[in-house]
Nucleic acid binder design. Structure first.
Lengths: 249, 249
DNA sequence: TCAATTATATTTGTATGACAAATTGGCGCT
DNA sequence: AGCGCCAATTTGTCATACAAATATAATTGA
């Protein structure tokens, strides 16, 4: 269970990744205790020092808890530091079609429209340029028939807006969800046929921010996210959105 | 600079706290390099093992970065894991009257009304009871003249609602801001004279959630937070709130 | 018999010393 | 000046020993 695959080198990062996945995908369940440090060291073929270093990382991320003579215990998901970028990255791979995905999209629906609204007020020239650039890379010019959305650029677009919000915590959140965004945006773009429509929605957000129109930026981002959610064939209720959200596609 | 105060015992936790504070309060500035591990061990009078363990924690929290032969370098605030509860706790003490406080309140204004809205939909019996209980502990019965707001109960009230949102990330955020809440809510309650009014606002939120009225819960929480912000004599612009927010106190 | 206390064993935590690996900076050579 | 090589510094890893904490078992006393 704890041995790494033959082809991956045994180093600290890989050990951390490996154990983290075992926890997040449920192979190691809540309250289960891991072998003691000496046994783990033997299993992985490294020193106890390195095992302890790896466990310290996992502990900081809230995945495990260690107590003298009780050993290393797996903590429940409620204790996981989900906003840590690495935890988020692991989780987004393992928990794709579950409560996790719903919570994430819900969070995006809460944060990103507000981030866009703040960006419309506070974005400086550099921020604006970043948003423009990533939008430009999202797809070739409209004129050229085939419109293929670039997932990476899409992510950069969202991150640039989040960063431009000028809020320390919102920006932090942006760093964190990077990894998770990749997953959902890729799936969304893959499912969505009408990329031209999607590009138009994104453009509206960009223009609203350029025009310092906070409310329009908010509404525009709501629409972008609703499209994403629609593409993923999910439904989210309960998040209160500002009034003018009679979004048709 | 690195020696702990005489009265505090030299253990790992205290060393972490101490260095974290030096970083967060600006004594150790961005890109500044700390003494090497051996020197730090000597300064604190502990082994290099413990120093390394402490530095590992600080590294996980994004406060420092370590590279072979470059030593330990202080990272900029943009890399700090602000959503980590400990980092948040340290920051809220050191950066009270700065950009930090504004960002935090802005974040609360984004998250908490939505959390209340979600709670109105999803709260189960246990959640509701928690919210009710903490509200009850906030102040004595209205009839009894002197109304003194209980800061701890106030915090529990907010946390209970955040938890009841049923969103994994929002709940996580609730854990994190616990420490920071204490600071702002205490200051707010201290500055605010009319505690009865504040209690009424809180009660409205409670009742809205009990009545499963999502929109009312949202609006009610907006008003609670606006009061807090007013009490702290701050102004926050840019966050888009749902329509019916013609709040008078 | 049962309760409280004392041993004991297990596991993580800390200390120490040695060496490996990485990376900078200077030195010398061309 | 530019290139490659060597040495110095610092973190990273290893091995071993012991300390501290704590659950479990054994012991003792009423």
């Amino acid at each position: 269970m704890f041995r790494l695959l033959p082809e991956v080198p045994v180093n600290k990062k890989n050990i951390i990744d490996h154990v983290a996945r075992l926890i997040i995908d449920g192979t190691l369940r809540t309250d289960q205790v891991l072998p003691n440090e000496i046994a783990l060291a033997a299993l992985f073929g490294v020193s106890r020092t390195m095992i302890r270093d790896a466990l310290r990382s996992l502990e900081e991320k809230g995945l495990i808890e260690r107590k003298t003579n009780l050993g290393t215990r797996v903590r429940s998901i409620h204790s996981w530091n989900l906003l840590d970028s690495e935890v988020l990255a692991w989780s987004s791979k393992a928990l794709s079609q579950s409560r996790f995905l719903l919570s994430l999209l819900e969070l995006r629906l809460i944060m990103e429209p507000q981030a866009a609204a703040l960006a419309a007020i506070r974005a400086n020239d550099s921020d604006l340029q970043n948003i423009r650039d990533s939008f430009a890379r999202m797809g070739p010019d409209q004129a050229a028939g085939e419109v293929q959305l670039n997932t990476d650029a899409d992510i950069e677009f969202h991150k640039a807006i989040i960063k431009a919000s000028g809020n320390l915590f919102v920006a932090q959140f942006g760093n964190a969800i990077s990894a998770a965004l990749h997953h959902t945006i890729y799936l969304s773009n893959k499912a969505n046929i009408d990329h031209r429509q999607s590009l138009t929605c994104h453009r509206r957000v960009l223009e609203a921010i350029e025009n310092r129109n906070s409310k329009a930026a908010y509404d525009g981002m709501c629409r972008v996210l609703k499209n994403t959610i629609t593409d993923l064939k999910l439904q989210i209720t309960g998040v209160v959105l500002s009034d003018s959200d009679s979004a048709d596609r």
